[in-house]
Amino acid sequence: MNQKRNKRDSRFIVAHREAWIGVGIAAFNFIWWYGFAYGFGSQPISHYHYILGFPAWFFYSCILGFIVVTGLVIVFVKCTFKEIPLEIEEERDEE
């Protein structure tokens, strides 16, 4: 019984940590998105500078932001996400 409980808990510990990583990435994504869009974008248009033709706020917030967040997602999933079984294992243990 004890062993079974430990086993179940350990899978949830992994799952909980990964959910928190999701929250963390979303929070980072939000700050990046908001900071660049309204930090640079609220200037008068005459002060805008342009990167690859796009206004800087748009380039940083939407285009670079998408690339950076995708990069983060890839790194976190590849390096920190664990492969755990999802199937029910209780039948075996309950005997």
């Binding site: 899978r11 949830f12 992994v14 799952a15 909980h16 990964e18 959910a19 990583i21 999701g22 929250v23 990435i25 979303a26 994504n29 998105w33 869009a37 748009f58 917030s61 939407c62 932001g65 998408f66 967040v69 995708t70 997602v73 755990i84 999802l86």
Partner: peptide, 20 residues
């Protein structure tokens, strides 16, 4: 800019509901 928010849905739902 508004539409680009939807990038979040790509990872957030699956990470939050995730394995649990």
């Amino acid at each position: 800019l508004l539409a680009s928010i939807q990038v979040v849905t790509g990872y957030f739902t699956l990470m939050i509901l995730g394995k649990k």
